[in-house]
Computed example of a mutant assay.
Amino acid sequence: MSCAIIGFGNIGKAVAKAFAREGIEVSVATTRDPESFASEAAAIGPTIIPRKLAEAVEADIIFLAVRFEAHPDVAKTLPSWQGKIIVDVTNAYGVPDEDLGGQPSARVVARAFTGARVVKGFNHLVAAVLDQDPAAHGGRRVVFLASDDDGAAAEIGKLTENLGFAPIKLGGLSEGGLLVQARGNSWGHLIFKDLVKFD
């Protein structure tokens, strides 16, 4: 399964570092020309491949690490996202609840990416924590996952483990998504929690 990260800010780079630590290849893209961030990608590791946005969205699994407000523009890149898994790493902090129609932010993202299987994940840790080796305090740093598609959640759970984290599934987007989202001026009970699981 091919992977890509759309967005190369602090969170996108932190996710890229997780891939680099395990020597797993991942494409990275922004709306900018890949040459403009090629040196930053190279500094993270040789498995971090800068690509044009149109190339990166061909991947099977796409980590959406852009500002929440930018997700509709990314969604327009393809007419259909059928067969792809979108890992929603966004947070809608500062976005008024009425703009979300009373829905969890992950549901809003899912509507934009027609046909995709959406998994909310990797968004509850701040970049400075996500950036670190997930082997912490004798355990593994926890990543919460929420999805309405059990198969997609299982697939991202396996990838999460391959990246060294401990995945914990929270259920569907409406239940689990609410626990790990920042929206408006509030946040769910599990957002920004840095937890470690001991095997």
Rank of each mutant, 00 (worst) to 15 (best):
Ala4Met: 04
Ile5Cys: 07
Ile6Thr: 13
Phe8Trp: 04
Phe8His: 05
Phe8Pro: 01
Asn10Ala: 12
Ile11Asp: 15
Gly12Ile: 07
Gly12Pro: 10
Gly12Gln: 12
Lys13Gly: 14
Lys13Trp: 02
Ala16Gly: 04
Phe19His: 10
Phe19Lys: 10
Ala20Glu: 05
Ile24Gln: 09
Glu25Gly: 14
Glu25Gln: 05
Val26Ile: 13
Ser27Leu: 09
Arg32Phe: 02
Arg32Ser: 10
Asp33Phe: 10
Pro34His: 06
Ser36His: 05
Ala38Gly: 13
Ala38Trp: 12
Ala41Glu: 01
Ala41Trp: 01
Ala43Trp: 09
Ile44Lys: 05
Gly45Val: 02
Pro46Arg: 12
Ile48Thr: 03
Pro50Val: 02
Leu53His: 15
Ala54Pro: 07
Ala56Glu: 00
Val57Phe: 06
Val57Trp: 07
Glu58Ala: 05
Ile61Phe: 11
Ile61Tyr: 05
Leu64Ala: 10
Leu64Pro: 13
Leu64Glu: 07
Leu64Cys: 08
Ala65Asp: 10
Arg67Gly: 09
Arg67His: 15
Phe68Asp: 08
Phe68Arg: 01
Glu69Cys: 07
Ala70Gln: 15
His71Phe: 15
Pro72Cys: 01
Pro72Trp: 13
Pro72Gln: 00
Ala75Phe: 06
Ala75Arg: 15
Lys76Val: 00
Leu78Cys: 14
Pro79Gly: 11
Pro79Thr: 12
Trp81Phe: 11
Gln82Trp: 03
Gly83Phe: 03
Lys84Arg: 03
Lys84His: 04
Ile86Gln: 12
Val87Lys: 01
Asn91Tyr: 09
Tyr93Ile: 15
Asp97Leu: 01
Glu98Tyr: 12
Asp99Met: 10
Gly102Arg: 11
Pro104Thr: 13
Ala106His: 04
Val108Ala: 08
Val109Glu: 09
Val109Lys: 07
Ala110Thr: 00
Arg111Tyr: 06
Ala112Trp: 04
Phe113Val: 14
Phe113Arg: 03
Arg117Gly: 09
Val119Ile: 14
Val119Thr: 15
Lys120Leu: 04
Lys120Met: 03
Gly121Phe: 10
Asn123Arg: 05
Asn123His: 12
His124Trp: 06
Ala127Phe: 14
Ala128Phe: 04
Ala128Arg: 15
Ala128Lys: 15
Val129Thr: 15
Leu130Arg: 04
Gln132Gly: 01
Pro134His: 05
Ala136Gln: 08
Gly138Pro: 12
Gly138Ala: 04
Gly139Trp: 03
Arg140His: 07
Arg141Trp: 05
Val142Asp: 00
Phe144Glu: 02
Ala146Glu: 05
Asp149Ser: 08
Ala152Leu: 14
Ala153Gln: 10
Glu155His: 13
Ile156His: 05
Gly157Glu: 09
Thr160Glu: 01
Glu161Cys: 02
Glu161Asn: 03
Glu161Ala: 05
Asn162Val: 02
Leu163Val: 00
Leu163Phe: 03
Phe165Asn: 12
Phe165Asp: 00
Ala166Gln: 09
Pro167Ile: 11
Ile168Lys: 15
Ile168Ala: 08
Ile168Gln: 15
Lys169Ser: 09
Gly172Ala: 09
Leu173Trp: 15
Ser174His: 04
Ser174Arg: 14
Glu175Lys: 11
Glu175Asn: 08
Leu178Asp: 06
Leu179Asn: 13
Gln181His: 00
Ala182Met: 06
Ala182Ile: 01
Arg183Ala: 13
Trp187Arg: 15
Trp187Leu: 12
Gly188Asn: 08
Phe192Gly: 06
Phe192Ala: 01
Lys193Thr: 03
Lys197Asn: 00
Lys197Pro: 05
